[in-house]
């Protein structure tokens, strides 16, 4: 069963994401910010991270930078999750190492298609 880490400071978003991801047969863990997410990755590397961009303590961007510093042989796929749809914004996330992006609010079909694109489903 693929393992997904949901990183978002909103409990509601985490809950919605968990509900959808579990219905897609993923094992789900949650983190409230980038720092907590890094610790969880170090303990057990997920297959995919659903990553919020703007978070307190450590942002999505800083999380990605830290993760790439680890030079992992098999880094998790990263789907970043945002409320903004500017091209520059999306490009910055891709440059930082994100594999896909998803806009909030998202639904099951959207998440499913993104997981298929990154090869987790």
């Amino acid at each position: 069963m693929p393992h997904c880490l949901v990183v978002d400071d909103s409990k509601v978003i985490r809950k919605v994401a968990r509900h959808i991801l579990e219905s897609l047969h993923l094992q789900v863990d949650e983190a409230g910010d980038g720092r907590e997410a890094l610790e969880m990755c170090d303990a057990s590397m997920p297959d995919v991270v659903l990553l919020d961009w703007n978070m307190p303590i450590m942002s999505g961007l800083d999380f990605l930078k830290e993760l790439s510093r680890r030079n992992l042989a098999h880094p998790p796929k990263v789907i970043f999750c945002t409320t903004e749809n500017g091209v520059d914004y999306i490009r910055a996330a891709v440059d930082a190492g994100a594999d896909e992006y998803v806009m909030k609010p998202f639904d099951r079909d959207t998440l499913e298609s993104k997981l298929q694109i990154v090869g987790v489903l």
């Binding site: 749809n85 500017g86 594999d99 298609s113």
Partner: peptide, 23 residues
């Protein structure tokens, strides 16, 4: 629309072939 784009369009194709016009 943004919703159409989300459903299945890989990010690289979006960046390569689309420009944002309003929403």
């Amino acid at each position: 629309t943004q919703m159409d784009m989300q459903r299945g369009l890989p990010i690289n194709e979006l960046l390569r072939w689309f420009t944002a016009v309003g929403d």
